[in-house]
């Protein structure tokens, strides 16, 4: 009886959501993916007239694409590493210590995200100009570092705060020094959530465009910056599409990695969920 009832009840709202989400998320991805592998695709055909890797060959044959990939990867790695180096101890301090100005400092990281970013960047670019940082690798590192602060402070702070203090005290009690407690207890306890923050900051840095463009151009060209110039200068859709697919790769790898490292609740936990 109950089985028959559940069989008949169809969740139309759920199906509706699924269809809308599919259209909004999957459809553009499919279109871009198709464009990347289309040699010829003219109106009004629904599928490309000719599939092929012609534009991949053309794109990957360009040395500026390869240098942009290298640049993007090294930038993201350096920025994420420096960010972790600076932010994780700071996050621990925010989570565990009381010091004057703690909450004001804590919310100042949010302030950086609360204003229109471009205005802020132009002002910073003015300062960088006098410091001769415009167009340099480290100038871009610096500007992208600022962008990671919010994630790399707020999420680890929540992660550290979620670690039971008694666990740390119990470790002290059995003979572990404070440093040992941090390595053996606090970090493993907060680990999955911090891994999520590191991942977010890596992917976020990889896709960061405004800062890289404003501070780095024309010497420093990251993959997203290169894609913008491709789209602006050459009205061949395939170039943009191929680069889009290329840009998916790091986030795809990151997500695969994330599934292994991060339990599903970690992101939510990081934001106090």
């Amino acid at each position: 009886m109950a089985g028959a009832l559940t069989e008949k009840r169809i969740d139309w709202t759920g199906i509706g959501f699924a269809v809308v989400l599919t259209l909004v998320i999957i459809f553009p991805l499919v279109v871009v993916g198709t464009w990347a592998f289309a040699n010829v695709w003219r109106y009004p055909s629904v599928i490309p007239q000719e599939f092929g890797l012609r534009y991949w060959n053309q794109t990957l044959a360009r040395p500026d694409v390869w240098s942009a990939i290298t640049m993007s990867l090294s930038l993201s790695t350096v920025v994420t590493f420096l960010s972790a180096l600076i932010c994780l101890p700071a996050a621990y301090a925010f989570a565990r210590l009381e010091f004057p100005g703690r909450s004001i400092l804590f919310f100042s990281f949010l302030a950086g995200q609360a204003f229109p970013k471009f205005g802020l960047l132009v002002a910073i670019a003015g300062i960088f100009l006098t410091l001769n940082l415009i167009g340099t690798f480290w100038g871009v590192v610096l500007i992208q570092l600022v962008g990671t602060l919010l994630f790399m402070i707020w999420i680890p702070v929540a992660a550290f705060q979620a670690v039971d203090r008694r666990m740390e005290e119990a470790a002290r009690d059995v003979g572990a020094s404070p440093v040992r407690v941090f390595w053996s207890i606090t970090l493993p306890q907060a680990g999955p959530t911090i891994a999520a923050a590191v991942l977010l900051s890596f992917v976020g840095t990889f896709y960061e465009t405004e800062g890289a463009w404003l501070i780095g151009a024309p010497q420093i060209r990251t993959l997203p910056v290169l894609m913008i110039s491709f789209i602006n200068n050459q009205p061949v859709i395939q170039y943009g599409a191929v680069l889009s697919v290329l840009l998916w790769i790091p986030s795809f790898i990151a997500l695969l990695f994330a599934r292994r490292v991060i339990s599903s609740g970690s992101f939510a936990k990081g934001f106090g969920g």
């Binding site: 039971d164 008694r166 666990m167 005290e169 119990a170 470790a171 002290r172 009690d173 059995v174 003979g175 572990a176 020094s177 207890i185 493993p188 306890q189 680990g191």
Partner: peptide, 20 residues
């Protein structure tokens, strides 16, 4: 003397076992 150098053993109310 800091806790790690004391010959004391403490059992906490919340058991405080290391879950990892």
């Amino acid at each position: 003397v800091p806790p790690e150098k004391r010959p004391t053993g403490m059992v906490f109310q919340s058991h405080a076992l290391w879950t990892h």
